[in-house]
């Protein structure tokens, strides 16, 4: 039995197969509409995340299956002190696959050790969010036609932004990818990303503080939100929140085919005036997210070959 806990659980070849399947789902929705008939996904969300939970549930429903679960720890047995290990043993009796979001890092790994059904990490603290990473990769591949030969700028909270860490770790596996890391000094990427991922793989990168100077160089601009829930100190959060705001004037500095991605939700880091710009890809990303999660469900349930 296979789980998805980290985006690197899939090799480059497996990732290509998964994204091919997601693309086929996008093009031939009807072909997949009953493939999971009678199957259930349990969405175990110990912290709220409307978009991710609905995306998983929509993915299973699109495949002909159904969904059950909870959307906050307070509405689950966790509020009575039940451990993740016990909860997953119980859920293994009710569902065929589960997606777990948990504020504590490593909780889905703990679940996978006791589970009798595939576990998908739907985000664990500041650690990993593999389905978001695969969604980001599908967005880039679908709209740019490639995952190699790209200059990608990450902007905002690069310290706590798990989507940034996961996407960098995934993209360094492709040839000729360069990174420009735009952040205030306090929110630079952690040292392990610099040393163990970028430098260890001889990947060209630079760390800068100016968004304007970097924009003309980019094929992709990946914006992030400064996440209040990752700060123990409110004053620090408020000080850093408004450092970078992407607006129409800044977009004028960018290439005409640069894409703007964002894992959403945004607060104020992308002005709404950018939404109508054809380069704004963050809402398309949401749609790709459903196709990717459909492909993940099929792959982990071993149903991916049934329609090939």
């Amino acid at each position: 039995m296979r789980h998805l806990l980290n985006p690197l659980d899939f090799s480059v070849e497996e990732t290509a197969r998964l994204l091919d399947l997601a693309t086929d789902i996008e093009r031939n929705r009807d072909k997949y509409k009953d493939i999971c008939k009678g199957k259930k996904i349990a969405t175990l969300f110990y912290e709220p995340s409307t978009r991710t939970r609905l995306s998983f549930e929509a993915a299973m429903i699109n495949l002909g299956g159904s969904a059950l679960g909870f959307s906050s720890a307070s509405s689950s047995s966790a509020s009575k002190g039940e451990s993740v290990s016990d909860t997953i043993r119980m859920v293994s009796c009710y569902a065929d696959i589960c997606a777990m979001r948990h504020p504590k890092e490593g909780a889905p790994t703990v679940a996978s050790l006791k589970s009798r059904i595939p576990v998908v990490n739907a985000g664990d603290g500041g650690h990993q969010h593999p389905t978001q990473t695969l969604t980001d990769m599908m967005t880039i591949r679908s709209l740019k036609g490639r995952l190699d030969n790209l200059t990608i700028g990450f902007c905002g909270d690069l310290k706590f932004g798990r989507t940034v860490h996961s996407l960098i770790e995934s993209l360094v596996r492709y040839p000729n990818v360069k990174f420009i890391l735009i952040s205030p000094p306090e929110l630079r990427v952690p040292s392990y990303i610099r040393e163990d991922v970028l430098e260890a793989n001889n990947i060209p990168y630079k760390e800068v503080t100016s968004m304007e100077e970097s924009l003309p160089e980019l094929d992709i601009l990946y914006m992030t939100r400064v996440q209040q829930e990752r700060f123990f100190n409110e004053a620090e959060y408020l000080r850093l929140r408004d450092t970078y705001i992407l607006d129409k004037a800044k977009m004028a500095l960018a290439n005409k085919d640069m894409l703007v991605l964002h894992p959403l939700p945004r607060v104020n880091e992308i002005s709404v005036e950018v939404d109508d710009d054809p380069r704004a890809a963050y809402f398309k990303q949401v749609q790709y997210g459903v196709y990717v999660r459909m492909a993940i469900i099929l792959t982990l349930l071993g149903l991916d070959k049934e329609v090939q």
């Binding site: 290990s85 504590k104 603290g125």
Partner: peptide, 8 residues
């Protein structure tokens, strides 16, 4: 402090 072992 964010690790699951901190609460379990």
């Amino acid at each position: 402090p964010r690790c699951i072992t901190s609460i379990e």
